[in-house]
Design a protein around this nucleic acid. Structure first.
Lengths: 156, 156
DNA sequence: GCAATATGATTGTCTCAGCAACAATGTCAG
DNA sequence: CTGACATTGTTGCTGAGACAATCATATTGC
């Protein structure tokens, strides 16, 4: 996530809008805080960043454990070149393989290897625990649905 | 913000936890989407990223329009070295100045120049409009308080 | 008063993401 | 069929942040 933090209208205005912005500030700060925790834990316990983890998850979640590079990039919220380098690394580590697409010779499939499956299997409890600890457990169950609906309104 | 996107437990598990994670996914996606919009608009209209904008805001919001480098770094949710480079850029652009601290000769004050104030004055309507358009206007007023409280629970 | 330690800021180096340009391939109008 | 255009993935370049090491200065303990 890009580095984003505060926002404020103060400066020279008395800013009647300031109070409204509290929710915006909370949004930014909470996101920065939670994702940092998760990344820290994932690196500490598995030497893997959220980006790499996300690739494994995306591939594991899909029928043949493979995705076209562009499709993957989109799901990762990453540029195509970003996906290329990321897969370069994971391929070097043996967790993903590139397989040429037969029906479209421009294309490559990024496919999860058994080693990649294993890596994900080892890492996901850490991540899931992190999400529970730093996110779910702090939002009372009754509010989660409400929170989700609020946040989804922000999507296109 | 670092690139963060999806999360999923699927893979080989039937994942009873999946439904709970919807709120988590919404959190990630909404943040990515909104901050990208804001950054895009700020760059398009003022050639300035969120990081730079944030510096101006932080300095403008404070008594003498100046902050110690370390203090600034903390408010920006950035490393100290990150703040150094960021201020390097803004100083080169004439919007911030470094002033030695008299009471502690190790320290530097990052101070907003009149040009910086002007720059902020020009940019903040864009940013505030963006926040209204992409965030506030999508969360009904009655829900904002609730959302803020939920999100603040995630903070330390 | 002086050595040891802590702190503020900067710098070097590494990593990683985006953009623009490119080659290879696919698609489609005529 | 063919030539214009689009798409896929990769690459070189550049920008930007994190970390560790360093430098200068403050503070603390003796």
């Amino acid at each position: 996530m890009q580095q984003v933090s505060e926002t404020d209208t103060s400066a020279q205005q008395p800013s009647p809008a300031d109070a409204q912005l509290d929710s915006w500030r909370a949004f930014l700060r909470s996101h920065a805080h939670v994702t940092r925790q998760l990344e820290r834990e994932l690196i500490a316990e598995h030497g893997m960043g959220l980006a790499e983890y996300d690739v494994l998850v995306q591939l594991a979640a899909v029928p043949d454990r493979q995705l076209r590079m562009s499709d993957l990039a989109e799901r990762l919220l990453l540029s195509r070149s970003g996906a290329t380098r990321l897969i370069d690394r994971l391929e070097a580590a043996g967790q993903v393989e590139r397989v040429s697409c037969e029906s479209d010779r421009r294309g490559q499939w990024a496919t999860l290897t058994p080693a990649g499956v294993e890596r994900l299997r080892a890492a996901w409890p850490t991540h899931l625990r992190g999400i529970r600890e730093h996110f779910l457990s702090r939002i009372p169950p009754g509010e989660r649905e409400h929170l989700r609906r609020s946040l989804e309104r922000l999507l296109p």
